[in-house]
């Protein structure tokens, strides 16, 4: 539980500082384009890594289980432009149904 509160505290303080960075420090300056071009890609890279590890990692192993089926169903829902909540529910229900049948 201490680990959780450490994360809440550090991530909270870091995020507050990040959001305040521009309004407190900018004085009319912008982040240089060369930096922005790279920083912009952090979110897609990290999100994709989270997709991959949350779907296929089980401790130190790569596995194909019900989560992969849920992810596939979610991908179809996203292509069909379903709202976020529907995407998440579709994935959970798919995995739950497959587990119930197994």
């Amino acid at each position: 539980m201490k680990v959780v509160w450490l994360c809440v505290l550090v991530v909270g303080v870091a995020t507050i500082a990040i959001k305040a960075s521009g309004p407190l420090l900018a004085g009319g300056r912008e982040v240089p384009q060369s930096t922005a071009r790279v920083v912009d890609l952090l979110a897609p890279a990290v999100l994709a890594a989270l997709v991959a590890t949350q779907a296929f990692a089980s401790d130190d192993d790569l596995v194909l289980d019900e989560r992969a089926a849920g992810l596939l169903a979610a991908g179809i829902a996203i292509v069909l432009r379903a709202p976020l909540l529907v995407v998440v529910v579709v994935a959970a229900v798919t995995a739950a149904l497959l587990r119930a049948l197994a």
Binding site: V3, C7, T15, L42
Partner: peptide, 29 residues
């Protein structure tokens, strides 16, 4: 954390995700 990662790993992932707010915050400053 739910997958058994350490605090450092969880904090690192979150802060790197939020790094996108740096250029956004400067743009809106």
């Amino acid at each position: 954390l739910g997958a058994g990662g350490t605090a450092a790993a969880a904090i690192g992932a979150a802060v790197l995700l939020n790094a996108r707010y740096v250029p956004m915050a400067f743009a809106a400053a």
